[in-house]
Nucleic acid binder design. Structure first.
Length: 309
DNA sequence: AGTCCCGCCTATCCAATTGG
DNA sequence: CCAATTGGATAGGCGGGACT
C-alpha cells in the first residue's frame, strides 16, 4: 500500500526531471554530511583578519573530493542528527575550508559563528569531534528550505480557516504590477498581505527583513505614479506599508519546518506590538529586529496577529 | 532575438554606534 | 579610547520577464 504511494511519488520526481535518479535527487536536496576528522577549539583572531575562529580538518574521500575546495562553506550539525538517532536538524557553528592538503589527503578549515567571540566559545562547548559538517553541493538548500517553509505555512493557514493566495514572483506588465509581498490571506471577508522571511544565519535571535533596493524613478517625486512610489526602495529595508504581516520561518532556530513567528507591519511608536523603524528611513522597517515569540511583537500563530486591533 | 534588468535567496563586508 | 556590536548594504547564484 505505502510502497505504491512512495513509488508513484518517486516516479513524479524522476518523471518531471527525466533521467534523474533517487541518488541525484538526494544529492541535490540534501547537503552531503562529512565527519569531522580533527577539532582544535583554540579561539584565534589571525593578523589582518577581523573575525574569531577555531580550527578543524576533514579527511578527503572519493565522495567528497570534488567539493572540498578552498573557500567552501558548510554548517556543523550534531552526530545524533547525522547518524539518524535524532530527527532534529541543528546548526552548531559554521565551517569554511581554508586549505586543501594533498600530502595528507585532508582539508583544513576555520570554525566561526555569526556573532561575538563568546557566541563562538559557546558553540565550541557544544561542538564535538564526532559531529559532522554538511555542505550544500549544488546550491539548492536555501531555496528548498524557503519553499518547504512556505508550503507548510499555506497548509497551516488553510487548516486554520484562511483562504490563501500566493502572489506571482514576477508580473507581466499587461497583467498588472509586481506586489512586493508573498501572500494574501483572507478570512471573514478581510484580506491581509503577508511577507515571508527567514532567520539571520546563526544569530537566530534576529529576523532578516530585507528587500532589494530599486532604482529611483525618473522625474520629480510629485510626478511619480502610485506604482512607482510603491516599488521605490531607496534602502534594503522593507517598507511598513508594503505588507500587513511578517511571517518569519524559525527553522534555523528550532529545526521544525512548521515553526513561524508572526508580527504586524506597524512601527513601534504607533502601537505596543510594532517593529522598530530603520534609523535613516522612517517609513522602512529596521532590517534586523529582535525576533522572540512572546516578546510582545512576535507571535506563534497567525490568529494572534490577525486579531490585533 | 538577444540582452538587460530585477525578483528571490544566503553570506559577507564595512561603517556607524555602543559600551567597557 | 579601543573593541565589540549593530545595522545598512553588497556579492553572487538562479531564473524569468521586459526592453531594445
Amino acid at each position: 500500500m505505502n510502497t505504491n504511494k512512495y513509488q508513484s511519488q518517486l516516479e513524479a520526481l524522476t518523471g518531471r526531471y527525466n533521467g534523474a535518479s533517487l541518488d541525484s535527487l538526494v544529492a541535490v536536496l540534501c547537503p552531503i554530511l562529512i565527519p569531522i576528522h580533527t577539532l582544535d577549539k583554540t579561539i584565534l583572531k589571525l593578523p589582518r583578519q577581523t573575525h574569531y575562529r577555531a580550527s578543524f580538518s576533514l579527511k578527503i574521500v572519493a565522495e567528497n573530493r570534488s567539493i572540498l575546495q578552498r573557500g567552501r562553506t558548510g554548517k556543523f550539525v550534531p552526530a545524533a542528527y547525522a547518524n539518524g538517532a535524532s530527527p532534529l536538524w541543528k546548526e552548531i557553528a559554521k565551517g569554511r575550508i581554508i586549505k586543501v592538503d594533498k600530502s595528507t589527503n585532508s582539508v583544513l578549515g576555520e570554525i566561526y559563528t555569526g556573532g561575538t567571540r563568546n557566541q563562538l566559545a559557546q558553540s565550541l562547548v557544544e561542538l564535538q569531534e564526532t559531529d559532522f559538517i554538511e555542505i550544500d553541493q549544488y546550491g539548492a538548500a536555501a531555496k528548498v528550505l524557503s519553499g518547504l517553509a512556505e508550503y507548510h505555512l499555506v497548509e497551516m493557514a488553510e487548516s486554520a480557516g484562511y483562504e490563501v493566495r500566493r502572489m506571482p514572483e514576477d508580473m507581466a506588465r499587461h497583467l498588472g504590477r509586481y506586489r512586493n509581498f508573498d501572500f494574501e490571506f483572507e478570512k471573514g471577508g478581510e484580506v491581509k498581505r503577508v511577507e515571508v522571511k527567514s532567520l539571520w544565519g546563526t544569530n537566530t535571535t534576529y529576523a532578516r527583513l530585507i528587500h532589494s533596493r530599486t532604482a529611483k524613478p525618473k522625474g520629480p517625486m510629485r510626478k511619480w505614479t502610485k506604482s512607482q512610489r510603491d516599488n521605490y526602495y531607496p534602502t534594503s529595508s522593507c517598507k511598513f506599508a508594503t505588507q500587513d504581516i511578517f511571517a518569519v520561518s524559525q527553522f534555523l532556530r528550532t529545526g521544525n519546518i512548521r515553526d513561524f513567528a508572526f508580527a504586524r507591519s506597524l512601527p513601534d511608536d504607533e502601537c505596543s506590538y510594532g517593529l522598530p523603524r530603520a534609523s535613516h528611513h522612517r517609513e522602512h522597517v529596521n532590517q534586523n529586529p529582535s525576533c522572540q515569540i512572546g516578546d510582545g511583537t512576535w507571535f506563534a500563530t497567525i490568529d494572534e496577529v490577525w486579531d490585533l486591533p
